[in-house]
């Protein structure tokens, strides 16, 4: 087997091996980049309600029960917190309810994990740690080899060779250009 054929085989097989992980990292990469525009991990629904106003101050458990009755809540936990005398936060399974006591304005928030995206980001951002770190490292090594073997796949035709070199150079120049602009 000559070196060209070996290089081609290596490039092809590493490429196949990297398909799954590349899709994972690419999809999650876009999601993570745009986290400020779209929360890929959770879908959060917010809705407003109204209860009778209450005077500012430390809310006691009887008042919390009274609020819960007004909200028609039965499954909500009794846990609550006041960040200041005017506001009360209540907690329930996957929900948080913020109440502004003097106005009686209630902002309820229901959050739910996006099963696919949450897990994708979990792996991409290496929250799993442990053995997954090795998998990610091996994948990075695979990409490195893919780039090296890719560079050696230069076509024989002169016009294609020129195009290949231009594209290769473009891939190097783009990050350098942005480093020059932003760094």
């Amino acid at each position: 087997m000559n070196w060209r054929r070996l290089n081609h085989s290596l490039h092809r097989d590493i490429g196949f091996l990297c398909i799954g992980l590349t899709l994972l990292y690419a999809l999650s990469g876009i999601a993570v980049n745009h986290m400020h525009d779209w929360n890929a991990n959770y879908s959060i629904e917010q809705f407003n309600l109204q209860i009778d106003p209450l005077p500012p101050g430390v809310v006691n458990s009887a008042q919390v029960q009274q609020i819960l009755r007004q909200l028609g809540e039965t499954k909500i936990s009794k846990k609550h917190f006041q960040p200041d005398p005017e506001n009360l936060w209540l907690y329930a399974d996957k929900r948080m309810i913020r109440i502004h006591l003097p106005s009686g304005n209630v902002q309820a928030e229901k959050s739910q994990r996006r099963p696919f995206w949450y897990r994708l980001n979990f792996l991409h951002l290496n929250h799993a740690k442990q053995a997954w770190t090795w998998v990610a490292d091996i994948y990075a090594g695979g990409l490195f080899l893919l780039a090296l073997t890719g560079m050696l796949l230069l076509p024989k035709r002169a016009d294609l060779k020129r195009r290949a070199l231009m594209l290769c150079l473009g891939g190097i120049v783009i990050p350098v250009f942005f480093l020059f602009i932003y760094y």
Partner: peptide, 12 residues
């Protein structure tokens, strides 16, 4: 960022 990620379900 990314080293520890607290889940939203931790509230309460």
């Amino acid at each position: 960022d990314g080293e520890i990620v607290f889940p939203l379900e931790a509230r309460g």
